[in-house]
Structure formats: structure tokens, C-alpha cells
Design a protein around this nucleic acid. Structure first.
Length: 276
DNA sequence: ATTATATCCTGATCGC
DNA sequence: TGCGATCAGGATATAA
């Protein structure tokens, strides 16, 4: 479900809601989420909520007894949602895998397919993703060129690699390549300098625009209040097989790469097209 | 060392 | 209307 923009929205909404609140209790109802021992969180204060790659990172203060601060990284994977229920007792709660009770409200982790994960860190450095964040100043064309260098992977597959660039998923990968006028089948390491610049700016533009429109609700993304995003109205290629390309009117095509759908315009994104 | 395949889950949708 | 097959925005362990 959530890619970088959706996770960013969730973190931005939660930060002002949760920061400063003290933790009452953490209930983990799904044993699958309890693979590792769960640290004691009662009595800690939420110091902040930020996006870290595709994960939502919660900073929890040291406990009064003097323990060290703690970080919780929540990965939403396909169907995870973090829902903030203000008020002391949320009487009727939707189904959820875990529940963080805070002073003044509860944070529910709902996740139908149960792919989402909790990871605990006592050092935020350890929680940092391996790949470069596309919205950080660190993503420059030379930097991207260095990351792409020598890779024979198709561009689309490369974009999904979280150990290079972090945050791009299946929907935005197609959107980014369409905007950059690059074929999803091109070898990642074969881009010219100009094409690399286009890829950097298209990646930023698409992700920022999606954040601006509160993300994409393809089937079930909802923000922390249960509201849907609106970026699906702006999708240029994703889920538009057979529809006319908004740029050149040619029919959008669908291909399968790594068992995942790729949507592209065969004219705007032809392998030989140099773009411009 | 890269790169395909299978796997983790549930629910919605598709085609017959 | 019913029912099995197929498909989902993610990522990883295993196999090739």
C-alpha cells in the first residue's frame, strides 16, 4: 500500500498529534508482531514522529527510572494503517494488530494482510535506511549516476530496490519513468547524464506532488484520520492500460516485471527515444 | 555477485 | 448467485 508519499503523510499527521504525550501501554494483539522481545514503553514520552524511508519512526524518551531512549520503526507494507483515535476511551475500535495507548488517545495499527512490521532500536542510526532518500539534498544527478552505475537491471526493477533509493514503490516507479520519458526496460546503468538528470527531477516532482495531494488511494490507503488520498486522479500511467497517454494519446501498455505490473507509454517511453 | 522464484497474509475482483 | 483463480501499493529468504 504505502510508498514514500503515503508514509510521509502519516508521519506528518502523527507528529503534532502525538508529540509530548506520555505512553500508557502498548498492546500487541497479533503474536506475529511480537517476534522479538517488546521493550517497556509505559511512562515514556513521544518525542517525535518522522518518516524514515518507507517506515514511520517514533522516538520515545527515556523512562523516569533512567533507561535510555528508544525508537520504534513501523513498516506499513501493503495494508498497514496507523489510525489516531483522540479521546480517553475509544469504545468501538476497528480490527487492529496493535494499539498504543497514550494520554489523551490511542494509536491503532490496523493491517489486514499482516505484512507490516515493528522494529525496535536504541540508536536511531541503526534505524536509518540503507538507500538514499529521494527527497533529501543528497540525491544529486552525480549521486544517482553513481548508484545506477554498472547495473544491468531494468530501470523499473532498479527503482524498487530499497538499498539504492529508498521510498519508491510500484505505483510511483511507473509514474516517475513516464514523467522522465524513460523506458522501464532500459538497463539502469545505461543512462546518459541528461537522462539521469531527468530521472532525479522526475522522482522528486512525482513524490512531492503526491505528498501535496495526500497520497494515492488505489484500493485502500487511508491517512491517520481515515481519509483517502487524491493523487490517483493524477496518475498518468498506473492502472491505465489501454487508456490514452495524457501526453501523446497513444494507448498505455502494461507489462510484467518481477511479477509486478509496469505501466508505460510505448511512444513517450520507447527504448530508443532520447527524450528531450 | 546479481537476478528469478516462492513465501508471508487477507480480501476484493474476475471470469465462467 | 456461486466459486475457484487471480490479483493487490512490500520485502525477504532461498534457489539458480
Amino acid at each position: 500500500m504505502p510508498e514514500l508519499p503515503e508514509v510521509e503523510i502519516v508521519a506528518r499527521q502523527l507528529a503534532p498529534q502525538l508529540t509530548g504525550r506520555s505512553v500508557r501501554a502498548l498492546r500487541i494483539l497479533d503474536p506475529k508482531l511480537r517476534a522479538h522481545p517488546v521493550p517497556v514503553v509505559a511512562g515514556r514520552i513521544v518525542r517525535g514522529v518522522v518518516r524514515s524511508g518507507k517506515r514511520v519512526l517514533f522516538e520515545l524518551s527515556a523512562r523516569p527510572e533512567g533507561r535510555d531512549p528508544l525508537w520504534l520503526a513501523v513498516h506499513l507494507r501493503m495494508t498497514g494503517r496507523l489510525i489516531w483515535c483522540a479521546g480517553e476511551s475509544a469504545a468501538s475500535r476497528p480490527p487492529h494488530r496493535a494499539r498504543l495507548s497514550l494520554r489523551g488517545g490511542e494509536l491503532l495499527f490496523s493491517d489486514t494482510r499482516r505484512f507490516g512490521t515493528f522494529d525496535w532500536y536504541d540508536n536511531p542510526e541503526d534505524a536509518r535506511p540503507q538507500g538514499t532518500d529521494p527527497l533529501s539534498p543528497g540525491l544529486t544527478p552525480p549521486r544517482l549516476a553513481g548508484l545506477l552505475a554498472a547495473s544491468k537491471q531494468p530501470l523499473k526493477s532498479w527503482l524498487l530496490r530499497q538499498d539504492r533509493l529508498v521510498g519508491v514503490g510500484n505505483i510511483y516507479a511507473s509514474e516517475i519513468l513516464h514523467r522522465a520519458k524513460l523506458s522501464p526496460f532500459r538497463a539502469a546503468g545505461s543512462l546518459t547524464a541528461a537522462e539521469t538528470r531527468r530521472l532525479v527531477s522526475a522522482t522528486r516532482a512525482i513524490l512531492e506532488r503526491a505528498i501535496h495531494h495526500s497520497g494515492t488511494t488505489f484500493s485502500d490507503f487511508q491517512d491517520t484520520r481515515g481519509l483517502e488520498g487524491s493523487y490517483q486522479r493524477f496518475l498518468a500511467v498506473y492502472d491505465r492500460e489501454g487508456a490514452a497517454c495524457r501526453r501523446c494519446r497513444v494507448a498505455i501498455e502494461r507489462a510484467v516485471q518481477q511479477q509486478r505490473s509496469t505501466y508505460y507509454c510505448p511512444r513517450c517511453q520507447s527504448v530508443s527515444a532520447s527524450g528531450r
